[in-house]
Structures are given as C-alpha cells and as structure tokens.
C-alpha cells in the first residue's frame, strides 16, 4: 500500500478513503465499545479531526502504515476517554494545550516520552503523589490543607516544590539520555529505545 498516496487522498477529503479510515477507527475501538457507548461516534469524529490537523501541520510522509497510526491513536483516545469518566473534570485549557492538539499527539506516538514519564513516576516521593492525587480528585486547596493539617500557603508551596522536583528528575534523566546514547535519539516513528 502506498501510504503517501493514501494520506494525500485522505487530506483531500476523498470519500472512499475517509470511509476506510472511519472503519478502521471503529474496528480499533471495538473492544472498548461497551464502555464508550454513544460516545464512540464522537470519538470517531475527534480522531479524524486530530489526524487531519496533525498531518496537515506536520507535512511529513508516512513511511510506516497509516492504518497502524490510526489504530494507535484510536486506542489511546479510547483509554483516555474511559479514564476521564473516573476523573474530576478539569479546567478548559487553551486549544494548543489540550490533549488533542498535534503537539500532544506527538507524545502519543513516542514510547520514549512515555517511558520518561514512567521513570519520573517511579522516582517521586509518596508525599508529593498523595498531595497531587487529592488535587486530581478536585479538592480545593483549603480542603487539602485542612485534611493535611497545614496552612493553605504551605500547601501551595509544597505542591509547587513537588512539581519542581519532578521537573528536576526529568531533566536529570534527559541529560543522562543525551550522554548515554547520543546517536539513538532521533526517531520520529514512535519506536522505543533503551533509556
């Protein structure tokens, strides 16, 4: 299959190509159908939107299977949707910082980026995780401060320190990556490397 040509037809809005991609998205989300319910149709449309935006803005040729790309994104979004149902709804972010933005999409395709997040998760302190889990649950700073028996000001400072610690760990790991394997970094196809 000439994926370059297929992608061009897709971006040109060819009906048969669009229909084929819709079928793929439906197949990829098939195992999540019970949980997604009616939201599955919306998910099909949002994956299309993400793909079109990403491909239009990145202008890169698809060397590997476009079908595999669609499958991954659709699977990722299905899991993301399922997780959101159990999370407290968060603030509407500016468009370029929302999850569906092409820059966010690049993270989906990069197992390296995910492995980095995982390694930071392994290294952060339990105290920090406890504070942030309460934040993710939607608790106000007054509620959390009261539960932890500290002042609201101390809590905000602690949360910021935890965030900065996570950032330092990440920067240390990224630096280690660069010094360890300087010639293995450039991979845009989402393949994982040993970090």
């Amino acid at each position: 299959m000439n994926w370059d040509l297929f992608t061009r037809h897709y971006l040109d809005g060819d009906i048969e190509t669009l229909s084929q991609v819709s079928e793929w998205i439906l197949q990829a989300t098939y195992s999540f159908r019970q949980k997604l319910g009616d939201a599955r149709e919306d998910l099909v449309q949002s994956v299309h939107q993400e793909l079109i935006t990403y491909l239009s803005q990145n202008h890169q040729s698809i060397e590997k299977s476009f079908k595999a790309l669609v499958w991954r994104i659709a699977t990722h979004r299905s899991i993301d949707w399922c997780r959101r149902q159990s999370r407290h709804p968060s603030e509407d972010l500016p468009p370029d910082l929302q999850d569906g933005h092409p820059q966010a999409l690049q993270k989906i395709l990069s197992a390296e980026s995910a492995a980095l997040v995982a390694r930071v998760m392994m290294a952060v302190k339990k105290e920090c995780r406890d504070i942030w889990l309460r934040i993710a649950a939607g608790d106000s700073y007054q509620e959390i401060a009261s539960a932890l028996q500290i002042s609201a000001g101390s809590l905000r400072v602690k949360a910021l320190r935890c965030r900065n610690q996570a950032k330092e760990i990440r920067q240390r790991l990224e630096k280690k990556l660069l010094t360890k394997a300087p010639f293995k970094r450039h991979n845009h196809q989402g393949d994982a490397h040993d970090l």
Partner: peptide, 17 residues
C-alpha cells in the same frame, strides 16, 4: 506534565506501547 506524573496509573502511552 506534572499532572501526568502524579497520576495513579501509568501513562496511556505505556499501555498502548
């Protein structure tokens, strides 16, 4: 980014990978 790090579950990308 920190929000992702302090989640209770692994990043979705790890699951899909």
């Amino acid at each position: 980014w920190a929000w992702r790090v302090f989640q209770d579950h692994p990043p979705i990308e790890i699951i899909t990978a």
